[in-house]
Design a protein around this nucleic acid. Structure first.
Length: 285
DNA sequence: ACATGGCGTCCAGATGTGGA
DNA sequence: TCCACATCTGGACGCCATGT
């Protein structure tokens, strides 16, 4: 059998994407510092390979279905090419990365991810900063964090959604704190992302409650729960084995789903930030 | 190993075409 | 008349086979 490898010309794909993005060969050419004629010829060469990519309509270009299909894959290929190029020409990752995370995710999710990242990129200095989700959002916007994991209600968010899971009531195994009224609730901090929805749920069910502890320490919060002095709320994946999930029902109101979203600092993303973000994504699969 | 010439590719510039 | 795309042409460059 005759088998022959063929190589795609990334230059042609880059030109194609630029034309598709700008809706015009002239504008696409300007973006790439090429003349219109060079762009026209490159598109013609690509179309000779792949079939017609643009409908020529009056003075505008419109992608054909084949062009639409190629566009997404072409973008991926260009990104991959640029990443590989950067890896080959810019050497190993180095520098400082400031990662923010809420208290509960630090213990549950991050250790294996950070361990793998540190092993692969020994010249990167990782700074881990723990705050509540609203504080993390503010720090990311202010540029004092490069990357942050933020817990938010699901829905429209500027961040990249990594997971959606249920918020659960937790208590001591065999405990009775959940029966007390007012309900003793222990939360990590006054700025805790869960606080608003928890209090809304309690009000809706007309459950009286009191806040027992908001010190900013997850260990202290969970110690209150282990001692059966209070109940608390946690994302399902972050619940320690020695605590028990308390079912919604007569004694406790139903809690909503929550998202874990990934935020980058505004502006240019560093290679280190992109790589750590990818490892966090991979770590959650 | 190096020089040379043929060939193909790519690009810019000039020009043609057609629509607004 | 202006603008955008297509086409043609010539120059620059790189690759490859061949000669020295």
């Amino acid at each position: 059998m005759h088998c022959m490898s063929r190589n795609l010309d990334i230059t042609l794909l880059r030109t194609f994407v630029a034309v598709a993005d700008h809706g015009s060969m002239t504008a696409g050419g300007n973006a790439l510092h090429l003349t219109q004629s060079a762009v026209s010829q490159q598109i013609a060469r690509l179309e000779a390979l792949s079939g017609v990519l643009f409908f020529r309509e009056k003075r505008t270009l419109r992608l054909t279905p084949g062009g639409e299909r190629l566009l997404g894959k072409a973008r991926h290929l260009i990104i991959l090419n640029d990443e590989l190029w950067a890896e080959m020409t810019e050497g190993p990752l180095e520098g400082v990365i400031r990662l923010g995370a809420p208290y509960d995710l630090v213990g549950a999710w991050l250790p294996p991810v950070l361990k793998n990242f540190a092993a692969a990129h020994s010249q990167v200095d990782i700074r881990l900063i723990c705050m509540s989700s609203p504080e993390l959002l503010a720090a990311t916007a202010a540029g004092t964090l490069d990357l942050a994991l933020v817990e938010e209600p699901p829905g429209k968010s500027a961040g990249e959604c990594l997971s959606v899971e249920r918020l659960e009531w937790v208590g001591a195994k065999g405990g009775a704190a959940f029966l007390k009224r007012p309900l003793p609730v222990s939360m990590v901090a006054e700025t805790c992302a869960f606080r608003t929805v928890v209090l809304q749920a309690l009000r809706k069910k007309e459950t009286t409650w009191k806040t027992l502890f908001e010190s900013g320490s997850l260990d202290a919060t969970q110690a209150m729960v282990r001692s059966d002095l209070a109940v608390s709320v946690l994302l399902a994946s972050t619940i320690p084995g020695d605590l028990t999930i308390l079912p919604f029902g007569e004694n406790l109101p139903e809690l909503p789903l929550f998202s874990v979203n990934l935020y980058h600092a505004k502006g240019q993303r560093s290679r280190v930030a992109n790589e750590l973000a990818q490892q966090i994504r991979d770590g959650l699969k």
